[in-house]
Design a protein around this nucleic acid. Structure first.
Lengths: 207, 207
DNA sequence: ATACTAAACGGACTACGGTCCGGATGTTAT
DNA sequence: ATAACATCCGGACCGTAGTCCGTTTAGTAT
């Protein structure tokens, strides 16, 4: 089963190609991930700074950035298990999220799944999204986009599915979802219902 | 004609309430705005730093932040004329953007107007959007949201117009629009067309 | 004019993300 | 075992947004 990484750099020992990782590097990665989880437990994802992380893990700051590339890269790594699980569900899992259900049902389920994911991981998901530069070029983000585009096409939506997929993705942006829930008290059910309404109408008129 | 400021702080001598501004403060504001426009001409909006701005204007850094609150606040101030003009058009101007046209036509025109605005001001609009904290609570942003919500209701959309307006707003986010245009070569016409498609379908099925 | 006060000033300071490079370390070929 | 080499390490360093507080100054009352 092919999964697309949330992170653009080597995720460990797997993912073919290059030479294997040196043992000290692997050890430091584990130290860093453990320290990161500790810090997030104590201070929340927003309270994690790269300096604190380096100190806690007992490594230099350069090591942190060599491993993860950026703060967002670190957050993506911490989410990669959950991300892989979600990818597995919408690509190969049971309907309606996985293949087998009508495209519209899959689209609705995809949004609900993504909303649940974002609300579950909260600040972590938001921090992982804050790439600033290539926020839209992260492999996993590209995959979501292509999945939505594919479902739109499958549902018979022919007018610029690529761009419409981009617009629909915008709706699921973690920052916006969390803001709606935390500041305006919107319930997850309302979020899911609005997504359902949105995609139903976008796809529905395409028949 | 009531216009809602893009910036939450006193925009100058007008906007009643508090005591008038001291003359040195007013002079420094003008110095800063002139210096900011110069720097943006020379280095682009992304190349403007608060230190360079303070130095160029010949004032202390503290003064810059007392005036504008943040980098995003400065950018909003620089955009406030254009923003006021846009507000005037969609609230009081001629149809289809202004009142008089059917709600759906106004919605379509609003998106097209906003797309044009974002593409015209580019990095400046993006920088102004980067508040990070209360990005969604800026008065002008709230106004756009309420305008979309109002038009949705007027068009007969009854299922959670507030949240649907938020979803539709997400589509017009400067970062996304600029990314689509600059990285993926999407034309403004395609953006407008997708917006038209989106709101037509959302509103259309509501009858 | 003078004294007084509230506002504004300036720039040193902090916090943070991210970069750099000389030195240390693991891996591998001989 | 040794040498050679690629990789990794650490932490000093940088640029930037934003804060703080002792000092200065504009407006005002006398």
């Amino acid at each position: 089963m092919f999964l697309v990484s949330l992170i653009p750099i080597r995720p460990g020992s797997a993912s073919g190609g290059g030479p294997p990782e040196r043992r000290d590097a692997a050890r430091n990665r584990e130290l860093l991930l453990a320290a990161a989880r500790e810090l997030i437990d104590e201070c929340g994802a927003d309270g994690l700074t790269m300096d604190k992380l380096a100190e806690r893990a007992g490594v230099g700051k350069g090591t942190v950035f060599r491993r993860f590339g950026s703060r967002a890269g670190l957050m993506m790594t911490l989410l990669s298990d959950a991300e892989a699980e979600f990818q597995g569900r919408f690509m190969f899992g049971p309907p309606p999220l996985g293949p087998g259900a009508p495209p519209l049902d899959r689209l609705i389920a995809f949004g609900a799944g993504r909303i649940g994911y974002v609300l579950e991981y909260g600040d972590l998901a938001r921090a992982a999204d804050h790439s600033l530069y290539n926020r839209f070029e992260v492999p996993a983000v590209v995959l979501w986009h292509r999945h939505i585009e594919y479902l739109l096409r499958a549902a018979g939506f022919d007018a610029d599915p690529w761009l419409m997929a981009m617009s629909l993705s915008a709706t699921l942006d973690p920052e916006r979802l969390l803001h709606a829930v935390r500041v305006h008290g919107v319930s997850p059910e309302r979020l899911e219902e609005t997504w359902r309404e949105l995609v139903t109408r976008v796809v529905g008129s395409a028949e």
